[in-house]
Simulated assay, not measured.
Amino acid sequence: MLSEKELSRYKHPIAVPGMGINMQEKLKTARILVIGAGGLGSPVMQYLSAAGVGVIGIADYGVILEEDLHRQPLYNMQDLRKHKAKMAASRLFSLNPWNKHYPFLLQVKPENAKQIFEGFDLIVDCSQHRATHQIVNDACLQTDKPFVVAEVHNWIAWWGGFNMMQDSGERSASYRCGEMLVDDFRNFDAGALGSTHGATALLIVNEIIKYLAGVPGLAGKIQTFNYLHQKFELNDLYPDRAAVAAVKERGLFTADEYGLEIVPDVED
């Protein structure tokens, strides 16, 4: 139940047609894990917290660097060299103390992924790292967790909703079912704009809120936006049931098999 102060705080989103108090209460009970507290993850977390998502987990083992502040406005100059996950939790609490923000100062890897995901309703992978995407995919299939994956490369952004329950009673496609498609949207030239990361984060959060409200649009689709040419594309994904079953049967690979470079554990 929402308190009187929360009802006052969220009076404008509650007034949006199709939202209402029930939807705001659903946001309060949602538990979302965001992997990566950088250029994409930090604005995703900001708007999820501002929207009233009750529990936000923050998984990131990195520290804040000045060269990244142009696309990570959640942090300040005095935060340099501090852990992103810890500072994100602190900043989000100051933004919305009605929510709970839990930092995980670690690298998501095959040995810990399923344990970390336990207790969360939705996993949002903002790591922008292919090996991590594959680990998230396989761990979510193993634990029946819906998840979102997103990347921004120069002017091109893409995001999609995977392993989500559909009206048919079946899960939507996995990340691996569309991996060849997203490879076409990757652009590994150097450079990153803060505006494209922030704009993409807003689009993702909007889709997540719609998903939590039961509005179709995120599950089983890859959405892309070319910011240079203002071009949007929507691609349907179709589940490869045999491939999904194989992942569930075999479990996770080793870090080496994923091509994941293991970093030392963070010393707090």
Rank of each mutant, 00 (worst) to 15 (best):
V16M: 11
T196P: 06
R91S: 09
L193E: 07
P216G: 11
H153W: 14
I222Q: 02
G36F: 09
F120R: 07
A245I: 03
G217E: 04
Y10M: 00
E261T: 11
P239F: 09
F117K: 03
W98M: 00
L92T: 07
N154M: 10
E66M: 14
K82W: 03
E257Y: 09
A255G: 12
L69P: 00
Q78W: 09
D60C: 13
H197M: 15
L74T: 03
H101S: 08
E67Y: 13
C126H: 12
T224Q: 12
V263N: 06
I135T: 10
D125Q: 09
G18V: 01
A59Q: 08
G160M: 04
I262R: 14
H133K: 15
I58V: 11
A192W: 09
A150M: 06
L7R: 10
E267W: 03
I21Q: 06
A15W: 03
M45V: 01
V149T: 13
L105N: 14
G214W: 05
A37E: 00
F162Q: 02
Y175I: 05
T132C: 14
F162K: 01
M23I: 03
K145Y: 10
H12A: 13
V16G: 02
Q46E: 05
I135M: 13
M1W: 04
D183H: 12
I56S: 12
F117H: 00
I123M: 07
N206K: 12
P97H: 02
G36R: 11
H70V: 01
P239M: 03
G217F: 10
L106T: 10
A201F: 11
E249H: 15
S172G: 03
L40M: 03
R9T: 00
A150Q: 01
Q166M: 12
A245S: 09
K210H: 14
G217T: 01
D240T: 04
R91E: 03
I135V: 13
G62F: 11
L40Y: 07
V108T: 08
F185C: 08
K11E: 04
A37W: 05
G251E: 05
R176Y: 13
G39A: 09
V108S: 08
E6C: 05
V263I: 07
D256K: 15
L40K: 13
L203S: 12
A190C: 14
E170N: 11
Q72L: 12
C126N: 11
A243E: 05
Q134K: 14
I116R: 12
S42T: 04
I123G: 10
K248I: 02
G20E: 00
